[in-house]
Simulated scan of single mutants.
Amino acid sequence: MPRAVIADQFGPPDTYALREYDPGQPGEGQLRVAIKAAGVSFVDVLTARGEYQFKPPLPYIPGSEYAGVVEAVGPGVTGFAPGDRVFGSGLGGIFAEAALFNAANVSKIPAGMGFAEAAVFPVNYQTAWHALVDRAAAKPGESLLVLGAAGGTGYAAVEVGKYLGLHVIASASSPEKQAAAKAGGADAVVTTGAADWRDQVKAANGGKDVDIVFDPVGGEATDLAFRTLGYGGRHLVIGFTGGLTALKTNLPLLKCASLVGVQMRGHALNRPEEAASNRVKVMELAAQGHFHPAIAAKFPLEDYVAAMELAFSGKAAGRVVLEMG
């Protein structure tokens, strides 16, 4: 019987156990997928701990990104067949060897992309695309400062930014993370936490203020980064791995800059056609070789605790992946 990482109450990774779990056969509009790889993110672990902004029902199987092979097709589903290589995302239920998914939210893996890459592709790259194209209306030649540039969404923002013709400045805390960001195409790197960080950013942008900030970090970094913006700048709020912050409202006023929220779930619920179009677009670009997710470490499903702890630590220069068999 297939297995899943599951718990009857929220808590740290060692609260969870690997148990037998059979999701059953697919119903109307569903696919049963044998999961081959799953992305492990900070938010996945935060949710598993019961500390995210919404709490899913218990018992809970963590995870939000996967890639695998179709095992069975439910009634009313067209365009898929057993054996198809697919990927997608969901709200939990992913750290498992098999799961059921609505076919409308499943896509075929682009040729040449492996399961591990596909598992960490959709959420990160759709987020970066939505943020830069829809929310920031980025224009070629503008400058983009990416915080947490070696993290999942940060690295995706570096690659998407370069594709869009932006001057990309990557902020990362270690030489390993800076090297990862440079490999993704960053034009310049600056050292997160450095006393002269703002001076580094300005120098990296030719002495000018920045047009766009991509911020999945939050905390003290948000205030500092917002101050790097110029007239008409846009600060994209992606997440808050560093904690929440209280930005003084005089800063947007004085700089004539905007604080812009970015949330994939809200986008999918309120503008589903636009979200679907974005998904198709980033998949096309991946198939053309423009995007290549960075993977820092792979763990077998049995080592889910170590994988979750590494993802939660923020120390990985790239994404963490669980592999099932």
Rank of each mutant, 00 (worst) to 15 (best):
Q9I: 08
T15G: 12
Y16L: 07
L18A: 12
D22T: 09
G27V: 04
Q30N: 06
R32Q: 13
G39H: 03
G39D: 05
V40H: 12
G50M: 04
Y60I: 02
P62Q: 05
S64A: 15
S64R: 03
Y66S: 12
A67F: 02
V70I: 08
E71N: 08
A72E: 06
V73I: 05
G79C: 09
G83D: 12
D84K: 03
F87C: 15
G88H: 04
I94P: 05
F95Y: 13
A99G: 08
L100K: 05
N102H: 11
N105F: 11
G112R: 09
G112E: 04
F115E: 01
N124D: 11
W129Q: 06
V133M: 12
K139I: 00
P140R: 10
L144D: 00
L144I: 04
L145D: 02
T153K: 05
Y155N: 15
V158Q: 11
E159I: 08
Y163R: 14
L166D: 05
H167A: 13
V168P: 14
S173W: 01
S174K: 02
A186L: 03
A188Y: 01
G193E: 02
A195F: 07
W197F: 08
V201H: 09
K202Y: 03
A203R: 12
N205M: 04
N205T: 04
V213K: 01
F214A: 08
D215P: 14
P216Y: 02
V217G: 11
G218N: 07
T222Y: 04
T222A: 15
F226H: 00
T228W: 00
R234A: 15
V237N: 14
V237A: 15
T245Y: 07
N250Q: 14
P252H: 09
K255D: 06
C256R: 15
L259A: 10
M264Q: 08
L269E: 13
R271C: 12
S277D: 14
E284A: 14
L285T: 01
Q288K: 13
P293E: 13
A294L: 10
F299W: 05
E302T: 07
D303I: 07
K315D: 07
R319K: 15
V320P: 07
E323H: 06
M324F: 06
G325R: 11
